[in-house]
Nucleic acid binder design. Structure first.
Lengths: 231, 231
DNA sequence: TTGTCTATTGTTGTATGCAATCTTGGGGTT
DNA sequence: AACCCCAAGATTGCATACAACAATAGACAA
């Protein structure tokens, strides 16, 4: 492990490849690139003022991460998501997120719990303003996303976090509560509270089951693309 | 979807990059490259008689898939596995494989079941010869691996398969039953049979629970690196 | 002896040119 | 009209050259 120590944090080193990678990823997320749209190496290279080499390397990475699909001698295009994809992702979340909560409840620290409770409180406050100010829902969605991430992180299983991150990323595109009525929004907030309660009293099973319910409730509100909605 | 139809199967097209990718992956699997060993671009390029460009592209892919870790301006080396990694992987398997079996039991086809039963029979036969011919255990391990893969595939959730593949691959390095006593080996075979029975009578829960037991039993036999053993 | 600076060397990062491949459109044939 | 063939254009795949960076060893000073 002596080697590991002197390794520079890869994230701070900005190579042309990482730059291209980030730009393309961002453009996919914000809809600048649409599903099935081809990304031509020469175009993006000219745009970002680099050669095709770092572009190609970034594309390879994005393919491995599932953002793009590449056909040899044909090109790379943005992966499109079908209903089947949505279903598959939801099925995985429905197993992995409850697992994360169960594990988190077995090793939760005092400060992490405090942090989560603060987030829950914040979301509850915002919820009561959601009806008058629609844009608030975006803010709730953002905090909610962080809440789930924090819980997963608290599971202590890094791979679990990585898997969920890579599998759920599709949903990042549109994460909001715009289709929630106030009652459903409040129920969602109560779920958060209940999960934290279960963790506090040391009941992994309780926490796990509420998380399942939490996800299933969200799914029922979202129709077809249920998994891509926040929960 | 008109586009999708005319897309050539990427797997049959052999580019230099895919060749390098496969060679390095194989060398990691069979131990030719050891943990923490650096893979120098120029070396492998010279060896496989290609330029550094496809080598670099292959390395990027292997990094994304978790086989290598890359430090900018420093190099790529084989990722080493700690006990923590082993634990994390086992925890994920323990959730995902039972899930796969449950789902598989809800959509199992006649022919797939027949195929699985044939594999189970074959393994049972080999098991009775395992004591006299130790090398047989390798063959059992190989079939067993296929058995599990087939079950996961039958779940109908492609992502689940991809996740398990990417997460469990570490265990591929040494998959054998060499540390199983005959009784444990027989129990493992009975588990396979029981899973198939549960599927046949349409009891997803039964199948799921046996799979859990199957994995936990395997873990108990393997001590520290339990997850890297076959099950 | 220890620490620091620097030249050297090895390795990776990027640009560019060319080869290989695929797509497309036009002309010809049936 | 439908089909096939082929050539031109577009795009990716790969090789090579060079630039940027990091590690190392040796000289020199404290």
């Amino acid at each position: 492990m002596a080697n590991t120590a002197r390794i520079a944090p890869a994230s701070v080193v900005q190579t042309a490849t990482t730059k291209v990678h980030e730009v393309i990823k961002q453009r996919i997320l914000d809809g600048h690139y649409q599903a099935h749209e081809y990304i031509r190496e020469a175009n993006i290279a000219r745009e970002l003022d680099v050669s095709r080499t770092p572009v190609r390397e970034a594309l390879r990475e994005l393919v491995s991460e599932g953002w793009l699909e590449m056909i040899p001698h044909h090109g790379s295009r943005v992966t499109a998501w079908t209903e089947k994809d949505a279903r598959e992702v939801f099925e995985l979340r429905l197993v992995l997120e409850p697992m994360a909560v169960r594990m988190a409840s077995e090793r939760m620290t005092r400060e992490c719990l405090t942090k989560l409770e603060a987030m829950a409180s914040h979301m509850e406050q915002l919820t009561e303003m959601a009806d008058t100010t629609p844009s608030i829902r975006n803010e709730i969605a953002s905090i909610n996303h962080e809440f789930h991430r924090e819980l997963i992180h608290a599971s202590g299983n890094q791979r679990l976090g990585a898997v969920l991150e890579s599998v759920v990323r599709t949903s990042v595109i549109r994460r909001n509560f715009s289709h929630y009525d106030l009652a459903s929004l409040r129920r969602s907030m109560r779920h958060h509270r209940e999960i934290l309660e279960a963790i506090k009293v040391g009941s992994p099973l309780w926490a796990e089951q509420i998380m399942s319910a939490h996800l299933l409730a969200a799914k029922s509100l979202n129709g077809r693309f249920s998994d891509s909605a926040e929960s």
